[in-house]
Amino acid sequence: MSEKSLKNKTALITGASRLQGIGAAIARKLATDGADIYFTYYLDYDRKMPWGVEENEPDKLQQTIQNMGVKCFKKEINLAEPENIKLLLNDVKEKLQTPDVLVNNACYSTNNNYQNIEAEELDKHYQINLRATLLLSSYFARSFEKESGGRIINLSSGQFKGPMENEIAYAATKGAVDALTISLAAELAPKGITVNAVNPGPTDTGWMAQKLKGELLKKFPQGRIGKPEDTARLVSFLASKEAEWITGEIINSEGGFKR
């Protein structure tokens, strides 16, 4: 792949609020490849999570990307509100151009199981993990007017490789993303858009306690836990011209992780 394989392309990445996160790593990598970047974030969610977030992290990410010599815009947005999704894509087009690459990275995740799951919490998972992913992909595809080069890349979590205990709502809704990827790939192939999903496996984005890291490390034959940059490199390839023949795939990029 050439160093500027995405020059003159625009990439929209959702869920890039935290500098240690996968979304931020993807945004930096696609910028390195020459793409102009538009990323979304939603600090209200991260503030409530154990890992937290600094208020200026999105600003720092934007500045880092602009220093790479490409354009970068950001927007704080709640993707659980359907009306925000069309407004988002219109804003990307207005500030940059109709996007060539969509990375559905934003997610919602809380611990729950069959004993305590209720409709309200299940709906919150569905709204972000599935509905927003599907609607963003749909509106992205409807607006895409080029003959080829469109890319939709979803973030999956390996739901079909093993159970995720105490994350039943997350597992159910993210598992649906795999099914969506396969069906949407067939529908969008005639429009010159590929659709793939990436399962990065357990990735150290700042949420892992040391005890958990020690337990997970034993299951990685390469002797380290996954990094956000590992995912970003794969997304970069899938976004490139070199990946034009790959579509409808769920790629488990887990470094040999053994469940």
Rank of each mutant, 00 (worst) to 15 (best):
D204Q: 12
K60H: 12
Q127H: 10
F144A: 06
L43C: 15
Y108V: 00
I193H: 13
S17L: 08
N104M: 02
G175P: 04
E229P: 04
A141L: 06
L30A: 09
N111E: 15
L30K: 12
S148C: 08
A106W: 08
D230L: 00
D230H: 07
L134A: 05
P200H: 06
Y41V: 05
D123Q: 11
T194Q: 06
S5C: 15
Q62T: 11
L136C: 14
A169I: 00
A186V: 07
K71G: 07
T173N: 03
T133Q: 02
V53L: 07
R224S: 15
I152K: 01
P228G: 12
W51E: 13
L61C: 02
K9M: 10
W245C: 08
P58M: 11
L43P: 00
G175A: 05
Y45L: 11
T247P: 04
R259N: 14
C72G: 05
T98A: 15
K258M: 15
F257H: 03
A243M: 04
T14R: 02
L89M: 10
K258S: 14
N8K: 09
K60E: 09
E81W: 05
R233C: 04
E147Y: 03
E167T: 08
I128H: 00
E147N: 13
T110S: 08
G256Q: 10
L136A: 04
S240M: 05
A25G: 03
G248K: 02
A189Y: 05
N111L: 09
I225G: 11
L135V: 14
K75I: 09
A119Q: 10
L88R: 02
W51R: 15
S5R: 13
A189Q: 06
Y108M: 01
M68F: 10
Y139H: 14
D91F: 02
N199H: 09
K93P: 04
I13T: 12
L184W: 07
E254L: 13
G214E: 14
K74V: 10
Y42G: 01
L79Y: 03
Y170R: 00
A197I: 00
E249D: 10
S138R: 07
N84Q: 14
D91G: 06
I128A: 02
S2T: 06
E229W: 04
R233V: 01
E76Y: 09
F220M: 12
F257Q: 03
L155C: 05
R233W: 06
G15F: 06
G149Q: 07
G175T: 02
I65R: 09
S109C: 09
N199E: 08
D46W: 02
G248N: 01
G158Y: 03
D91A: 11
D46K: 04
S2E: 12
M208C: 04
A11P: 07
G52T: 14
I37H: 09
R18D: 11
H125E: 01
S109K: 01
L89K: 01
P163N: 05
L180N: 01
N166C: 06
L184A: 13
E54H: 11
K191E: 09
N166F: 12
A31G: 15
T203H: 06
E3M: 14
S157Y: 04
V195G: 05
P200N: 02
S143C: 13
T10W: 01
L87T: 06
S17I: 05
A132E: 03
L234I: 05
P202N: 13
E121P: 02
